[in-house]
Structure formats: structure tokens, C-alpha cells
Simulated scan of single mutants.
Amino acid sequence: MKDFDAATAVEPRGVANGHHEFAVDLDAQWAVGDKLHGGYLLAVLGRAAAAVADGAHPHLTAVGASFIAAPEPGPAVAVVEPLRTGRGSSQLRGRLVQDGRPCAEALITQGRLEDGDAWWTRAEPVELPAEQDCLLSPAESPGVPFRIPLMDVVEQRLCPDDLSFLTGRPSGRGRIAGWQRLASGADWDPLSLLVALDPVPPASYDLGVPGWAPTVQFSAYIRRLPAPGPVRALLQATEVTGDRMDETAHVWDAKGRLAAQATQVAAVRPPR
């Protein structure tokens, strides 16, 4: 089992026409079923972008990505094109390619994050039972027809109030909340928070729409360097229209401060 840093490692392959190429080895452990986790894939691109960005901008602060095709675990290439380097941030374009096929495309902003408190906020952390009183998400669950390897590397404990769908009675609120830790014991950082922002299962389960909900577009903002310890994550759907669902995610660090937030559009198959 690779820890997060090893699973997102990149190896420089050279520069051609201003495009920096990195060899990557996509790790099957960071997957839901046989599909690699979207936050993990963006973290790989973020690792490559950090290697290209000016040293004054070591942290990913924002990313907007489109997922084009699901890559397989194994060798792939991350391509990073610097777009602009300013005083406070650098903008880069990243692409994940496998066997000559683009799999994900992202615009990435690099900057420098701090670990201080907010000057103003209304993002109060989601209220949850104590971590030990929440339900641990296993890699293999009764009634789930596929394994979730991600749960071997991310220790996730979900709020019991959000799990009524397990007994066939989804609440209809479109909400999933819980605690998350990296199973390796490592602290969360700006890249690994991208994984926390895309928790499993999707909010559609609480709407009575189980099954895979592949991300089509994902935008995330990392607000600060998170304090050591577990994070709380809240995932909520706003509307399901046709075969698309939007979800918003907020993640608070162990001090109860907003560490990251995201919005995504995912594909779903609601009952007709």
C-alpha cells in the first residue's frame, strides 16, 4: 500500500515547447470500484504543477477540472504548461494523458497558504457526533457490488443520521457528512484535501439514487494549511436535473476552520 505522497509522486521527463512532462504511476488503491478517485487524479496533476511553479508559490490554492475519460491504474503522463507567474500566484494548465488519450484537463492556481484563522467567516463546521460514534466506512460493504479500495487508505467515519439509505429509507436531504483521516497517519495537506472534498458515497445515495456518480466537472478552493488531525466533511446536493447532479463540499480542519471547499457536477441515473 502506497501512502499519499508516494501514490502521487511525479518524475520529470523533460520540457518540449514550454510543456513540462512527468511520468506518473496511478495507484489502484486510490479508487472507487475500478475507477480512480477524481480528487486523487487532480492531486497528481497538482503535484506536477507544484514542481513547475515558482518556488514562492508552493501550494495549490484553486483548481478547475474536466474529466474526459477514466484512466486505468498504471503508467500515465502529466503535462503542465505554465501560463502566468505573478507576485501572489502562478497559473498553470495541467493534463493527464494515458496511452496518448487525454483523461483530465485542469487549470491550476498555485500560491502560498497560511495556517492562521480567518478574518471573517460564517462557515461554521458541520455538527457531528464524536468520531468514535460515527460509522467506519469499510472497503467492502454488504449490498455494495464492488470493492472501494479508497477506504483502505482513507479512514472515513460517517454520521449515523446520514445513513438511512442503508436500510432502504433515504432521507431525501441529499447530504452525507463525516470525519476523515489518512489511514497512514499522515496529516492532511493542500493536495490530499482534494481527496477529502470528494467523499464516498455521493449525496445521490441519500436521494435514493445509488450507484456510480462519475464527476464531469470539479472546482475546488484550498483556503489554508489544515491543522494536524481529522477533518470534517459535508457533501450536499442542490438539484438533480435530467442525468446531472451538482454537489457542494466543505471541509473543516481539526480546529474547526474551513480548510477547503468544492463544487462538482456529476452524472446520475435517477428513476424515470
Rank of each mutant, 00 (worst) to 15 (best):
E114K: 05
R101M: 12
W119H: 14
V77S: 11
R173G: 09
V144N: 05
G88L: 05
P102H: 10
P142E: 06
L107R: 08
L158G: 04
P58V: 06
A76F: 01
P82T: 07
A53R: 04
E127S: 10
R87H: 15
G143K: 00
Y40F: 04
V79N: 03
L83K: 08
G111R: 12
G111A: 15
G174A: 08
A106F: 03
D162A: 03
R112I: 09
G174K: 09
E131L: 15
A50F: 03
Q91C: 06
P129D: 01
L60R: 13
C103W: 08
A104I: 04
R93W: 13
Q98G: 13
P145M: 13
R101Y: 01
C159I: 09
A56L: 11
I68R: 07
L41T: 02
T167K: 14
A65L: 07
D161E: 11
R101F: 08
R157L: 08
L166N: 01
S66Y: 13
V126Q: 14
R122I: 04
L42D: 04
T121Q: 07
R112V: 06
G38T: 05
A50D: 07
E124N: 03
P125I: 13
L107M: 12
I108P: 00
A53H: 12
I68E: 13
G116W: 06
P75D: 14
P58I: 06
G46A: 02
P149L: 02
Q98V: 01
L113K: 06
L158M: 01
P142D: 12
D162V: 04
A76N: 14
R175K: 09
G168A: 11
R169S: 02
G64H: 14
R175I: 12
R84Y: 06
E114I: 13
A76D: 08
G46N: 14
D117E: 13
D162T: 04
A49H: 03
G116F: 04
R169G: 00
D115H: 06
S171C: 03
P170R: 08
L158R: 10
P73M: 13
G168K: 01
V63E: 09
D115W: 13
R101A: 12
T109A: 10
I176T: 10
R169L: 10
E140P: 00
F146E: 04
E72V: 06
P129K: 14
A43V: 04
R175F: 02
E155F: 05
F67S: 15
R175T: 15
D162M: 05
G39P: 08
I68K: 06
L45Y: 03
H57I: 03
P75N: 12
G174N: 05
I176E: 14
E155P: 09
P160Q: 11
V79I: 11
A139D: 12
A48C: 09
A48V: 02
A76C: 02
I68W: 01
F165I: 11
L166P: 00
G38D: 01
V79T: 03
T61Q: 13
A50E: 15
E81H: 07
C159V: 07
L83A: 07
A106I: 03
A70T: 11
P58K: 02
G174M: 12
Q98F: 01
D117V: 13
R147C: 10
D117N: 11
D162Q: 00
S66C: 08
R87F: 05
Y40R: 05
A51E: 15
E155Q: 15
V154R: 03
L158K: 00
A104D: 08
E127L: 15
S90W: 05
W120S: 11
